[in-house]
Design a protein around this nucleic acid. Structure first.
Length: 291
DNA sequence: AGATGTCAAGCGGAT
DNA sequence: ATCCGCTTGACATCT
């Protein structure tokens, strides 16, 4: 049914209307309390199921799960084998997504630095990426996307990009889901697209970040470069708007009409899955006219 | 009871 | 040289 839409929309982490969150977590000091951890994970999975059903009733075809779906999943002190104990629950919630044609994603955060010169940071980062791949596997989420920034450049972007490629080329399980997103300071679309191409994976254009760090490209040119990296998969994009009362780069409550119009114009008739990153989460989708 | 500050992790940039 | 922001919920500690 969703194939009828050229543009599909989604939102991250939580639903304010229900309300429901896939990002319930706990303090590290409480991690030894396995009963507490189990309960939180079941709460995240139950809320994910509620969100997926809510989305399906409104033809919302994308959802980004919270990175704490399994809190501290990659931490060495995690108290039990989460993939075994929650495997069936993850399979069941994954089936809801499949049944309703909803594409899932996750977005490991700023501490994930696979190109770090520090081997310990690289290893922690890989553990986190493998957690995401494992969760997707257990959910049978074959079209899911693991969205990642390339992290620091350590004063030498070319060498760092080469190291990023070298490290991740050893991670076939991660590469099946991984996509590289441009950021507002360090890595622009031409750089993420080149790195992604070298790894045989796609690049996500974040239209808002692109405005701060264009790499010399218009938005339209950036899309021309990144969209083909998706091959025959539906391309993913990110969109957000500037909060007028906060520092440059801060996400607004909703999407400005102009930003939406500019992205649609740059896309022309091409299809895309657009993740809407707004403080008002699912509420921000209501004003966006899709084709 | 309610408000506040801190919590695993790493970067780049502002000051 | 130090600090802040990235994002959000949990929760220890305070009033």
């Amino acid at each position: 049914m969703y194939k009828n839409f050229v543009i599909r929309l989604g939102y991250p982490t939580q639903n304010l209307t229900l309300p429901a969150s896939t990002n319930h977590t706990l303090r590290l000091s409480n991690l030894p309390n396995a009963a507490k951890v189990r309960g939180l994970i079941r709460e995240n999975i139950a809320d994910l199921a509620r969100i997926l059903l809510w989305n399906s009733e409104r033809d919302i075809a994308l959802f980004r799960m919270g990175q704490s779906l399994i809190p501290f999943a990659s931490h060495p002190e995690f108290p039990y084998n989460w993939a075994v104990e929650h495997g069936e629950e993850l399979r069941e919630v994954g089936e809801i997504a499949i049944d309703h044609g909803i594409r899932l994603s996750m977005h490991p955060g700023q501490f994930i630095q696979p190109a770090s010169p520090n081997p310990a940071v690289v290893e922690h980062s890989l553990l986190e990426l493998r957690y995401v791949a494992r969760a997707f596997d257990l959910m049978h989420a074959s079209d899911a996307v693991m969205v990642l920034h390339m992290g620091g450049a350590y004063g030498d972007p070319a060498t760092t990009a080469a190291r990023f490629i070298e490290v991740l080329s050893q991670e076939p399980d991660v590469l099946r889901y991984l996509a590289l997103e441009n950021d507002e300071r360090v890595w622009s679309v031409p750089e993420t697209s080149d790195t992604a191409a070298a790894l045989g994976i796609p690049a996500i254009v974040d239209a808002f970040h692109h405005g701060f760090n264009t790499g010399g490209l218009t938005l339209s040119e950036a899309l021309d470069l990144a969209l083909p990296t998706w091959g025959n998969r539906r391309p993913k994009l990110h969109l957000s708007s500037q909060d007028p009362n906060k520092r440059p780069g801060a996400h607004a409550y909703s999407i400005s009409t102009n930003d939406w119009k500019l992205l649609l114009e740059a896309l022309e008739s091409r299809e895309a899955d657009i993740m809407i990153e707004a403080k008002s989460k699912e509420l921000a989708l209501a004003n966006l006219e899709i084709r």
